Simulated scan of single mutants.
Amino acid sequence: MRIVFMGTPEFAVPSLEALAAAHDVTLVVTRPDAVRSRGKKLEPSPIKARALGLGLPVLETRRMDAEAIDAVRAVAPDLICVVAFGCILPDELLAVAPLGAINVHGSLLPRWRGAAPIQRAILAGDERTGVSIMRVAHNLDAGAWCRQVSVPVGTKTASQLFDELARIGAHELVAAVAQIADGTATWHEQNPALVTIAEKVKKGEMRLDPFDACATNALRIQASTDAAPARCQVAGKGVRIVLAAVAGDDAPHVATGDVVLGHGRVFLGCADGVLEPLRVKPDGRREIDASAWVQGLRATDGATWGRA
């Protein structure tokens, strides 16, 4: 089958690789090079880099204007496959391919339509999330779906879920393409009454707060990403908490907002219990285990912590 693939971030790479191995990917459409790291240099999107490595033609565009749509039309795709491309797709584009356009979405639709489904599932304390293969429709993430896979969230970080769902999404995408090709795909319309919206996560939402519940702070840390990290101040210094756990019965009593150190461990008092950082990234330093971080905190034993 002739396929145009549209995607940008690392999440989309497994899907591109799987499609390229099974079908004729005639064009890869991605967002233009951008500053993506602290080096402040223009870098290709992960999809552009992988497409070039696979020897596939690449079109870079910020939006699907008439010129970009003409470029897609020129390669005569049977189907358009979209994975986190990064902009709204016009109806004119959706009509280019005879079999339409499908999308890999990182949630169990209709729950968590929108930009940040994986982080929102974690922040909401959802027990399960997953992947949906859906038709691209005029309204955002509103199309019918033909395949879904559910996975437990548990204590998986956002990064771990991204990787897991990217792999599952690639497998399900290839399976969906095969079913669409032979006419066996079964489509399920979304129930509007069950729709929730996964708005982009703002940095301010991820600030850890001693006056919030332990579980709330722990979910922020679990959902943390480089774009929206879980941060606080400990002893007056900024730090990103990369990994943490709600402390068990062996933890000392720690008053709300206080910091207690002991035996290579750090304990932060929250409104209803104690949070124990396990990995941290102090401002201006590399990521380290909390057992190493505690050595630099010893001079401030008995300090306080709060919002960054």
Rank of each mutant, 00 (worst) to 15 (best):
R265D: 02
V259G: 00
C270N: 08
C270W: 00
I168A: 13
A244K: 01
P192D: 05
C214T: 15
R240F: 01
G204S: 09
R265M: 13
H171V: 14
E205D: 00
R147E: 03
T184C: 13
C146L: 13
I221E: 09
E189C: 03
E199N: 13
A170C: 10
A181N: 08
A255R: 12
T155V: 12
R231E: 10
D182W: 12
M206N: 06
I168R: 10
L208A: 01
V201R: 04
D226T: 11
L165Q: 10
C146K: 03
E199K: 10
V153S: 02
Q148P: 04
V254K: 07
Q233A: 15
V153Q: 02
L194C: 08
D258A: 15
T157V: 01
A244M: 08
F267A: 05
I241A: 11
N217L: 02
A228K: 11
D163R: 15
V151N: 07
A235W: 13
I180K: 13
Q222S: 06
A245T: 13
C214W: 04
V195L: 01
A185Q: 01
P252Y: 12
K237M: 15
L268Q: 12
A215M: 08
G236M: 06
A271M: 02
G248A: 05
L268E: 03
S150K: 12
R207H: 09
G248L: 09
R167H: 00
A158T: 03
L161Y: 06
L268I: 10
V177P: 01
V149L: 06
A271R: 14
F211R: 14
S150E: 15
T186G: 14
G204L: 06
E164V: 01
H171W: 05
V149F: 07
P152F: 10
T225L: 01
G169V: 09
G238F: 09
V195A: 00
A271L: 08
K200E: 08
S224D: 05
D250G: 00
A178G: 09
D258N: 14
D258K: 15
A181K: 14
A235G: 11
F211Q: 13
Q233H: 14
T184W: 07
L261T: 04
V254Q: 03
A227D: 14
T157K: 02
K203T: 11
L194I: 00
W187D: 04
H171K: 15
C146Q: 08
C214G: 05
D258V: 08
L161S: 03
V246D: 07
D209V: 00
E205T: 04
G269K: 03
F162N: 11
T216V: 14
V266M: 13
V151G: 06
A247W: 01
A230L: 02
A247R: 09
A228H: 08
I221Q: 02
T216D: 06
L161T: 05
L268T: 06
R220G: 07
R231T: 15
G238V: 11
D182M: 05
Q222L: 14
T256D: 03
C146P: 09
A175P: 01
A213P: 06
